[in-house]
Amino acid sequence: MIASTVRSRLVLTTLAAFVLQVLPLPFWLAAIRPPLAVIAVIFWSLIAPRVGGITLGFVTGLALDVYRGAVFGQHALALSLVAYIAVRQHLLVRNKPLFEQTVFAAALLFASEAVSWAIDGWTGNAAGGWMRWLPILVGSLLWPLTAAWQASENRARR
Protein backbone atom coordinates (compact mmCIF):
# COMPACT_ATOMS: atom_id res chain seq x y z
CA MET A 1 0.00 0.00 0.00
CA ILE A 2 2.64 2.45 1.12
CA ALA A 3 4.91 1.31 -1.65
CA SER A 4 2.27 2.00 -4.28
CA THR A 5 1.64 5.58 -3.12
CA VAL A 6 5.37 6.21 -2.97
CA ARG A 7 5.62 4.79 -6.45
CA SER A 8 2.89 7.07 -7.80
CA ARG A 9 4.50 10.12 -6.17
CA LEU A 10 7.84 9.09 -7.58
CA VAL A 11 6.45 8.74 -11.10
CA LEU A 12 4.52 12.01 -10.93
CA THR A 13 7.34 14.13 -9.55
CA THR A 14 9.92 12.68 -11.92
CA LEU A 15 7.57 13.26 -14.84
CA ALA A 16 6.97 16.85 -13.71
CA ALA A 17 10.71 17.44 -13.32
CA PHE A 18 11.30 15.96 -16.77
CA VAL A 19 8.67 18.22 -18.36
CA LEU A 20 10.21 21.26 -16.69
CA GLN A 21 13.63 20.26 -17.90
CA VAL A 22 12.64 19.95 -21.55
CA LEU A 23 10.13 22.84 -21.59
CA PRO A 24 11.20 25.39 -24.20
CA LEU A 25 12.50 28.51 -22.48
CA PRO A 26 14.24 31.70 -23.63
CA PHE A 27 17.98 31.30 -24.18
CA TRP A 28 19.28 32.91 -20.97
CA LEU A 29 16.72 31.11 -18.79
CA ALA A 30 17.47 27.75 -20.38
CA ALA A 31 21.19 28.38 -19.80
CA ILE A 32 20.76 28.41 -16.02
CA ARG A 33 17.95 25.86 -15.76
CA PRO A 34 18.99 23.15 -13.26
CA PRO A 35 18.82 19.54 -14.49
CA LEU A 36 15.57 18.83 -12.64
CA ALA A 37 15.09 15.29 -13.91
CA VAL A 38 18.57 14.35 -12.68
CA ILE A 39 17.82 15.94 -9.32
CA ALA A 40 14.59 13.93 -9.12
CA VAL A 41 16.47 10.70 -9.86
CA ILE A 42 19.07 11.42 -7.15
CA PHE A 43 16.36 12.40 -4.70
CA TRP A 44 14.30 9.25 -5.18
CA SER A 45 17.36 7.02 -5.21
CA LEU A 46 18.26 8.34 -1.76
CA ILE A 47 14.73 8.31 -0.33
CA ALA A 48 13.25 5.17 -1.85
CA PRO A 49 16.11 3.19 -3.39
CA ARG A 50 14.04 0.03 -3.82
CA VAL A 51 11.04 1.66 -5.48
CA GLY A 52 12.73 3.48 -8.31
CA GLY A 53 16.36 2.67 -8.15
CA ILE A 54 18.52 2.22 -11.19
CA THR A 55 15.53 1.48 -13.42
CA LEU A 56 14.23 4.99 -12.73
CA GLY A 57 17.59 6.45 -13.75
CA PHE A 58 17.73 4.40 -16.93
CA VAL A 59 14.17 5.18 -18.01
CA THR A 60 14.48 8.92 -17.25
CA GLY A 61 17.78 8.97 -19.13
CA LEU A 62 16.22 7.32 -22.18
CA ALA A 63 13.40 9.87 -22.13
CA LEU A 64 15.96 12.69 -22.01
CA ASP A 65 17.78 11.08 -24.93
CA VAL A 66 14.66 11.22 -27.08
CA TYR A 67 14.46 14.95 -26.45
CA ARG A 68 18.03 16.12 -26.33
CA GLY A 69 20.60 13.37 -26.69
CA ALA A 70 23.36 13.78 -29.23
CA VAL A 71 23.79 10.00 -29.10
CA PHE A 72 20.99 7.68 -28.11
CA GLY A 73 21.77 6.09 -24.71
CA GLN A 74 23.98 8.93 -23.54
CA HIS A 75 21.78 10.20 -20.71
CA ALA A 76 20.59 6.65 -20.01
CA LEU A 77 24.14 5.64 -19.10
CA ALA A 78 24.81 8.83 -17.12
CA LEU A 79 21.62 8.53 -15.07
CA SER A 80 22.01 4.78 -14.48
CA LEU A 81 25.43 5.52 -13.01
CA VAL A 82 24.10 8.35 -10.86
CA ALA A 83 21.22 6.21 -9.59
CA TYR A 84 23.58 3.33 -8.86
CA ILE A 85 25.94 5.45 -6.76
CA ALA A 86 23.02 7.09 -4.93
CA VAL A 87 21.36 3.71 -4.22
CA ARG A 88 24.60 2.23 -2.95
CA GLN A 89 25.31 5.16 -0.66
CA HIS A 90 21.78 6.06 0.42
CA LEU A 91 22.08 4.77 4.00
CA LEU A 92 25.26 6.73 4.58
CA VAL A 93 24.13 9.92 2.92
CA ARG A 94 20.63 10.03 4.39
CA ASN A 95 21.95 10.55 7.92
CA LYS A 96 24.55 13.13 7.03
CA PRO A 97 24.10 16.84 7.73
CA LEU A 98 22.59 18.95 4.99
CA PHE A 99 25.90 20.38 3.85
CA GLU A 100 27.43 16.98 3.23
CA GLN A 101 24.30 15.82 1.42
CA THR A 102 24.57 18.85 -0.83
CA VAL A 103 28.20 18.06 -1.61
CA PHE A 104 27.20 14.47 -2.44
CA ALA A 105 24.38 15.62 -4.73
CA ALA A 106 26.68 18.16 -6.41
CA ALA A 107 29.23 15.42 -7.07
CA LEU A 108 26.53 13.22 -8.64
CA LEU A 109 25.21 16.06 -10.79
CA PHE A 110 28.75 16.73 -11.93
CA ALA A 111 29.33 13.05 -12.63
CA SER A 112 26.20 12.76 -14.79
CA GLU A 113 27.19 15.80 -16.86
CA ALA A 114 30.79 14.57 -17.08
CA VAL A 115 29.61 11.25 -18.53
CA SER A 116 27.53 12.90 -21.23
CA TRP A 117 30.34 15.38 -21.86
CA ALA A 118 32.81 12.54 -22.38
CA ILE A 119 30.39 10.74 -24.70
CA ASP A 120 29.88 13.96 -26.68
CA GLY A 121 33.63 14.17 -27.06
CA TRP A 122 34.18 10.54 -28.03
CA THR A 123 31.41 10.51 -30.59
CA GLY A 124 32.61 13.73 -32.20
CA ASN A 125 29.72 15.92 -31.16
CA ALA A 126 30.12 19.48 -29.95
CA ALA A 127 31.13 19.46 -26.30
CA GLY A 128 30.37 23.10 -25.48
CA GLY A 129 32.26 25.57 -23.33
CA TRP A 130 31.98 26.46 -19.66
CA MET A 131 28.28 27.36 -20.12
CA ARG A 132 27.55 23.65 -20.12
CA TRP A 133 28.38 23.39 -16.40
CA LEU A 134 26.24 26.33 -15.35
CA PRO A 135 23.03 24.28 -14.79
CA ILE A 136 25.04 21.88 -12.62
CA LEU A 137 26.14 24.73 -10.39
CA VAL A 138 22.59 26.08 -10.14
CA GLY A 139 21.25 22.58 -9.41
CA SER A 140 23.81 22.03 -6.65
CA LEU A 141 22.99 25.35 -5.02
CA LEU A 142 19.29 24.44 -5.14
CA TRP A 143 19.79 21.04 -3.50
CA PRO A 144 19.16 22.26 0.10
CA LEU A 145 15.66 23.20 -1.08
CA THR A 146 14.87 19.52 -1.52
CA ALA A 147 15.59 18.99 2.19
CA ALA A 148 12.12 20.21 3.16
CA TRP A 149 10.58 17.88 0.60
CA GLN A 150 12.79 15.09 1.91
CA ALA A 151 11.55 15.72 5.46
CA SER A 152 7.90 15.60 4.40
CA GLU A 153 8.58 12.44 2.42
CA ASN A 154 10.16 10.80 5.46
CA ARG A 155 7.18 11.82 7.61
CA ALA A 156 4.75 10.39 5.07
CA ARG A 157 6.57 7.09 5.04
CA ARG A 158 6.72 6.71 8.81
Binding site: G53, I54, T55, G57, F58, G61, V71, F72, G73, Q74, A76, L77, S80, L81, A83, Y84, I119, T123
Partner: peptide, 14 residues
Amino acid sequence: LRFFVYATLSLSIM
Protein backbone atom coordinates in the same frame (compact mmCIF):
# COMPACT_ATOMS: atom_id res chain seq x y z
CA LEU B 1 24.10 -6.40 -11.28
CA ARG B 2 21.24 -4.18 -12.31
CA PHE B 3 23.62 -1.30 -12.98
CA PHE B 4 25.85 -3.56 -15.02
CA VAL B 5 22.89 -4.66 -17.15
CA TYR B 6 21.67 -1.10 -17.76
CA ALA B 7 25.16 0.22 -18.47
CA THR B 8 25.76 -2.53 -21.02
CA LEU B 9 22.38 -1.80 -22.56
CA SER B 10 23.14 1.94 -22.78
CA LEU B 11 26.53 1.33 -24.33
CA SER B 12 25.15 -1.06 -26.94
CA ILE B 13 22.37 1.40 -27.79
CA MET B 14 24.99 4.11 -28.21
